[in-house]
Write a protein that binds this DNA or RNA. Structure first.
Lengths: 243, 243
DNA sequence: CGTTCCGTTGATCTTAGTCAAAGGGGGTGG
DNA sequence: CCACCCCCTTTGACTAAGATCAACGGAACG
């Protein structure tokens, strides 16, 4: 059964273009169904090997690693169009956990059909590799953020990135975006303590740059934020196509 | 011309097994030659799009990103078997730079043949995706290291990882390994200042845990180091196959 | 109506960064 | 062969960014 599958990577790359007849046929072959999950559901568990792979159709979540001492590193935020479970599919087990923070709608694939995809659909296999390379790119960026930037710049960079993605995905038109995370989630992503994250956030709020209330974030001064992030004004144009 | 290509991912996955007839034929098709570079050579430049992709046959190097303000984040250390240029091959440009720190021997491929690989050699395409996923895995680990660990633990984790790889690649049998990097390189990888890296290193030396002299590193107390890294004793067995 | 989770804030402490200066080597040129 | 220089390492003194600790407020929820 193929239902509406917007924002699915199998549909196209990048995730926006319309689906062709051939692609629809293809979907019939691979998609095994859709899955709706509640907030707080663990979709993938570090060290496990899920038989199912997902594409996010709707909702948000996060990927994280847990360290021996209980600390948590949020590896990335999950948004519509993201592919979940590549590691489980191609290596033998997941290296991080994935959890929903809102309710999510997922497009479900069978892990075992992945090899068939490589054999019969080289373009899609290529897309998959493209996705993996993209993921690698963003992890590298995040590593640079956490490794080299002071708190304020980290926060600005992180919020900006979330907002840009949100806009790119058509989830926000104006200055508002859904941000269903806790400050602890943000802190764990940026490598900061909750307290310091909160204080840094307050500083941004006091300066009228952002406004975060009840899971909704308002970017009141995009330029100012980009400035705090030390972002090269040209670079974001260059980077725009990479969501 | 196909010459000796040990440690090349195209040869096999993981990089150790012997090459079959079919694989030799395959190599003839894709390998365009070998390249020897001096220390300090920039192999890939962030933002550029190299027409050539490489596999490291011998020597060591590093990948890094440069931030707007001149800071540098070392993204990973490059060792034999590593594939260089996946992003250039599959996306449109490199997202980080790659530089040799010793002289290196490289196996050269043409970027344009990558698509042919996906069409005609699905197993190899699969391997390539596997490599990308592996890279993603290690970046995630490094992110957790930089984001959550204090200096000493970061250093211990980093050195341990370098040593384990070195052993896995057959480059060290005993407690010694080649470590041709500067302390600044290490600091930029761990998100620390050189000064603090140096002091932390001295502490390890004073406790007889490691000994680093003239580009050679001696792991004098592996257990002690693993302890400082808070490494789960079982985990390294699990992680061993992933180089 | 208590409990729990999250956000907020202040006080204090520690880790790691910055600044500065002094030792090596190893290479190059006089 | 020596001298100088450059790059890297090492060390100490000082500073600051951010962590930790602690306490309170509010909203959601059973």
């Amino acid at each position: 059964m193929v239902t509406n599958c917007r924002n699915c990577w199998l549909r196209n790359r990048p995730v926006f273009l319309p689906m062709s007849e051939a692609e629809l046929d293809f979907m019939k072959d691979f998609k095994t169904g859709e899955l709706k999950v509640d907030p707080g559901t663990t979709l993938m568990l570090e060290g496990s090997n899920s038989p199912q792979l997902y594409t996010v159709l709707d909702g948000m979540g996060l990927r994280y690693k847990t360290l021996e001492d209980g600390e948590r590193q949020v590896v990335s935020f999950v948004m519509p169009g993201d592919f979940i479970g590549l590691q489980a599919g191609v290596m033998d087990e997941m290296q991080h956990s994935v959890e929903s923070t809102t309710s999510m709608m997922l497009c479900v694939f069978d892990r075992r059909s992945l090899w068939r995809l490589f054999q019969d659909h080289p373009e899609r296999a290529y897309d998959l590799t493209w996705i993996a390379a993209l993921e690698e790119h963003f992890l590298g960026e995040q590593l640079a953020v956490v490794g080299q930037m002071p708190a304020e710049q980290r926060l600005a960079t992180g919020l900006l990135r979330l907002y840009d993605r949100s806009v790119a995905l058509g989830m926000s038109k104006g200055p508002w975006m859904k941000l269903p995370y806790t400050q602890k989630d943000l802190a764990d992503a940026l490598g900061l303590s909750v307290v310091h994250t909160n204080k840094t956030l307050k500083a941004l709020r006091d300066r009228g740059i952002v406004n975060w209330k009840n899971g909704d974030m308002e970017i009141r001064d995009y330029e100012g934020l980009a400035d705090l992030a030390h972002r090269d004004p040209d670079a974001d144009v260059k980077r725009r196509p990479l969501i």
